[in-house]
Amino acid sequence: MPTTLEIITSGALASRHGFFTRKGGASSGIFAGLNCGTGSTDQTEIVAINRARVADAMGVAPEALVTLHQVHSATAIPVTGPLPGPVQADALVTATPGVLLAVLTADCQPVLFSDPVARVVGAAHAGWRGAVDGILEATLDAMEALGAKRSQVTAVIGPTISQAAYEVGPEFLDRFRAEDDGNSRFFANGKGDRLHFDLPGYGLHRLRSAGVGNALWTGHCTYLDPSRFYSFRRTTHAGEADYGRLISAIRL
């Protein structure tokens, strides 16, 4: 594997996995690094090179890397191999060895799941909307359909935007309080009427409430570390035309 790749792992996950940073890729310019987003305006062949490097680092052929057309849904699908074409969903699960499940993010939460007893893994893209609508619970349901038990599942949230960098308006709080008044604990006061939302804290709450055996966040903030991570919000603030996508992957 290319020695320049930087892969964040968690000792809590028994399955082979990696939260890849932007380091070690072939992309240049605003995408500089390991941009794995086919939906970006980066050169298609360069993105393919980056994705092949990820597959190699995870010990599989490029065609074993399975991703989705992510749409901020609460849809999780089981896979046994490459998909026939773009599939709109936001989580993947498998009990098939050698299939590399991956999600793409640039501030949203990448969440990797593993039940080492039942030998079932999953990967979810969980922004605030998907998390509210139930993508994390849907992933667990899909894993259980393959024989997993949520009490045996470890779920790890990878690099995502931290509360310190996630400024929102009061209407955002209203949306979360409408679901559960207790959600106000995931918001801190900012300047004026601005608030700061704790996305990974909320993600951990949803996972633990759903009954996972273990849930944690790696502690990395995408917004605050531009040398290692892409960030949609940072790109927006900088007025850049597009942004790269980080990849997070897991396999049996």
Results as ranks from 00 to 15, higher is better:
residue 189 N to C: 02
residue 198 D to A: 08
residue 190 G to H: 12
residue 135 I to K: 12
residue 190 G to C: 11
residue 127 G to I: 05
residue 122 G to C: 04
residue 149 K to D: 15
residue 127 G to H: 00
residue 151 S to G: 14
residue 128 W to F: 10
residue 194 R to K: 11
residue 172 F to E: 09
residue 195 L to D: 10
residue 204 L to W: 04
residue 167 E to L: 13
residue 206 R to W: 06
residue 192 G to D: 04
residue 136 L to G: 11
residue 153 V to F: 03
residue 177 R to D: 14
residue 143 M to L: 01
residue 169 G to Q: 14
residue 123 A to S: 04
residue 154 T to E: 09
residue 130 G to K: 08
residue 219 G to F: 07
residue 203 G to W: 05
residue 149 K to R: 08
residue 116 P to Y: 00
residue 150 R to V: 05
residue 137 E to K: 10
residue 186 F to K: 02
residue 120 V to Q: 00
residue 138 A to C: 02
residue 179 E to N: 12
residue 135 I to L: 06
residue 201 G to Y: 14
residue 189 N to R: 12
residue 168 V to T: 14
residue 215 A to V: 12
residue 140 L to Q: 10
residue 173 L to Y: 09
residue 119 R to I: 01
residue 116 P to Q: 01
residue 150 R to N: 05
residue 113 F to A: 04
residue 117 V to T: 13
residue 217 W to T: 12
residue 116 P to T: 00
residue 191 K to P: 04
residue 179 E to R: 13
residue 213 G to V: 02
residue 118 A to P: 06
residue 220 H to Q: 10
residue 216 L to V: 08
residue 138 A to K: 00
residue 203 G to V: 01
residue 163 Q to V: 10
residue 192 G to S: 03
residue 212 V to M: 03
residue 174 D to Y: 04
residue 147 G to Q: 10
residue 128 W to D: 15
residue 204 L to C: 07
residue 192 G to F: 03
residue 138 A to M: 05
residue 181 D to E: 14
residue 142 A to G: 09
residue 178 A to D: 15
residue 179 E to V: 15
residue 168 V to A: 00
residue 221 C to Q: 11
residue 191 K to N: 08
residue 210 A to I: 05
residue 204 L to D: 03
residue 218 T to M: 10
residue 205 H to R: 11
residue 114 S to C: 11
residue 192 G to T: 02
residue 160 T to V: 11
residue 119 R to M: 07
residue 158 G to K: 02
residue 170 P to T: 02
residue 114 S to F: 00
residue 196 H to K: 15
residue 220 H to M: 10
residue 135 I to Y: 12
residue 191 K to D: 15
residue 137 E to W: 09
residue 147 G to M: 04
residue 210 A to C: 06
residue 113 F to H: 00
residue 148 A to Y: 04
residue 127 G to E: 14
residue 177 R to W: 09
residue 205 H to Y: 09
residue 145 A to D: 15
residue 211 G to W: 09
residue 167 E to Q: 14
residue 177 R to Y: 03
residue 196 H to S: 03
residue 213 G to K: 04
residue 210 A to V: 04
residue 189 N to W: 06
residue 116 P to N: 00
residue 119 R to T: 13
residue 115 D to Q: 03
residue 148 A to H: 07
residue 196 H to W: 09
residue 187 F to K: 02
residue 185 R to W: 10
residue 121 V to N: 03
residue 216 L to I: 07
residue 185 R to D: 09
residue 218 T to F: 05
residue 221 C to M: 07
residue 159 P to T: 01
residue 183 N to C: 00
residue 202 Y to K: 03
residue 201 G to F: 14
residue 182 G to I: 01
residue 151 S to T: 15
residue 139 T to L: 00
residue 131 A to Y: 07
residue 136 L to Q: 10
residue 182 G to S: 06
residue 124 A to S: 11
residue 133 D to Q: 15
residue 182 G to V: 05
residue 214 N to F: 13
residue 124 A to T: 06
residue 151 S to A: 12
residue 124 A to I: 05
residue 152 Q to S: 15
residue 168 V to I: 10
residue 199 L to W: 07
residue 158 G to S: 12
residue 161 I to T: 12
residue 156 V to T: 08
residue 179 E to L: 12
residue 199 L to M: 07
residue 145 A to Y: 12
